[in-house]
Design a protein around this nucleic acid. Structure first.
Lengths: 151, 151
DNA sequence: AATCTTAATTGGAATAATTCTTGATAAGCG
DNA sequence: CGCTTATCAAGAATTATTCCAATTAAGATT
């Protein structure tokens, strides 16, 4: 009677369900992402994971990130030509990239709203996925700028 | 009395206004983009431009695309880890990427709609830019798939 | 518990898009 | 017509990511 079906499956279960093994490396990469809940690049994940699994290689970090995203446990975030970032937030959301400090903020979808309501689809498009990114100045940096301008 | 102010400025005027020169190369790159109105990569622009300006180099194509986007005459389109694409459509719009045929379709913003209506901004964000991309199956490929499944 | 099979990991080499560098060319001004 | 400076061309350099081949480790099987 392990794993009651009315519970969201654990990462282990999800990975096993796809026929993969939950290795130390995969768990470490997953834990790093769940731990900070920011949007690190592969190299940032690599340096964080090294403190737990010092022998892990960058190639393995890329592999782990691939399998984790393949299993739907992690999302990739692409922004302009920058290196890919990884996001543990599985809710439907957009991203805000601050041009001043580089911070990435999750923007939740408003309830009852759909991106399809905003753009026109000329024909029978089957949407499987969407990615939305805003850029500009985040609240912290806006506040700083306002202060500086006042003096 | 050149350039009446009640007319949208030409590409030449815009470029000169920014202190740049309208060279053969820049015009050729611009014409290529305006001519086909699709979403070519830098290399695709390069091969198309070569038929007009056979001595142009890829580096120059990149330079021209940079100045054109800097002047707001062309937009760049980033999608996942793929090479950047360039878009001559200056209207506010999103993009649909067909996973089957690779086609990129412009999706116009519905009138009176704003992307900010769909996502929640937790604080005082100053939006300077947004990029929205959908992926899935385009009408043509959906139709083909339906046909194939029926037989 | 030892063995077997296959997936996963490593480290380095390879790739691909883009940027940088340096010397040559060409615009536009005086 | 010459000067100054932007632009261009060609190739080298960079950077993120993927590939490859050899080793290691999981977990099933005996």
């Amino acid at each position: 009677m392990a794993t009651p079906s009315n519970t969201t499956p654990t990462a282990d279960e999800t990975i096993h369900g796809r026929g993969f093994r939950m290795t130390d490396q995969r768990r470490a990469v997953y834990d790093v992402l769940m731990g900070e809940r920011d949007h690190p690049t592969a190299v940032e994940v690599f340096t964080r994971v090294r403190s737990k699994v010092p022998t892990i290689s960058l190639a393995t970090v890329y592999n782990c990130l691939d399998t984790l995203t393949g299993c739907g446990l992690v999302k990739t975030v692409a922004h302009e030509r920058e290196p890919a970032r990884y996001c543990p937030n599985l809710e439907d959301h957009a991203h805000f990239f601050c041009e001043a400090c580089g911070a990435v903020t999750d923007l939740p979808l408003r309830s009852r709203k759909k991106p399809e309501d905003v753009w026109e689809f000329p024909g029978d498009f089957a949407i499987s996925h969407h990615e939305v990114s805003f850029s500009g100045t985040c609240p912290k940096c806006s506040a700083k700028a306002a202060k500086t301008n006042k003096r």
